[in-house]
Simulated scan of single mutants.
Amino acid sequence: MTFPSAFDAFVPSGGPDFLAVSAIQPDYVPFTTLSAVPIDTAAHAASFAYAQKLTPPASFLHVLRCFYFALALLYTGFPSGTPGVPQIGFEELSMRLYHTTLLHDLGWSNNTEVLHHPAHAMTFELHGGFMAYEHLHTAAPDLDAQQVGDIVQSIVLHTSQWPSGNSSATQFLMSVSALFDIGGYNGTGIVGLNSSLLWHPKTIEEIEKAYPRGDFYQEGVGIFDREFVKKPNCLMSHYPGGLDALVKDLRVGPIVPEDSRARNVRGLKEPHFRD
Score class of each variant (00 low, 15 high):
residue 104 H to K: 03
residue 257 P to S: 11
residue 37 V to Q: 12
residue 197 L to R: 15
residue 110 N to Q: 13
residue 176 V to N: 07
residue 44 H to G: 11
residue 147 Q to R: 11
residue 144 D to I: 05
residue 254 P to V: 00
residue 98 Y to D: 06
residue 107 G to L: 13
residue 64 L to R: 15
residue 145 A to C: 01
residue 98 Y to K: 04
residue 180 F to P: 03
residue 48 F to V: 12
residue 193 L to A: 08
residue 190 I to R: 14
residue 179 L to H: 06
residue 193 L to G: 10
residue 188 T to Y: 11
residue 67 F to S: 01
residue 11 V to N: 02
residue 42 A to L: 07
residue 16 P to H: 06
residue 152 V to R: 05
residue 71 L to H: 03
residue 158 H to R: 09
residue 66 C to R: 09
residue 191 V to E: 12
residue 89 G to N: 04
residue 172 F to V: 03
residue 71 L to F: 02
residue 63 V to N: 06
residue 184 G to Y: 10
residue 80 S to R: 12
residue 39 I to F: 06
residue 98 Y to C: 09
residue 228 F to C: 08
residue 189 G to W: 10
residue 198 L to K: 08
residue 173 L to T: 04
residue 11 V to S: 03
residue 188 T to P: 00
residue 24 I to V: 14
residue 201 P to Y: 12
residue 193 L to E: 03
residue 237 S to I: 10
residue 16 P to L: 14
residue 3 F to R: 09
residue 40 D to K: 11
residue 184 G to M: 12
residue 109 S to D: 11
residue 50 Y to D: 09
residue 139 A to E: 07
residue 168 S to A: 03
residue 47 S to K: 07
residue 62 H to G: 10
residue 183 G to E: 04
residue 65 R to C: 12
residue 205 E to V: 09
residue 255 I to P: 05
residue 30 P to L: 14
residue 217 Y to E: 06
residue 78 F to G: 07
residue 173 L to N: 02
residue 155 I to A: 06
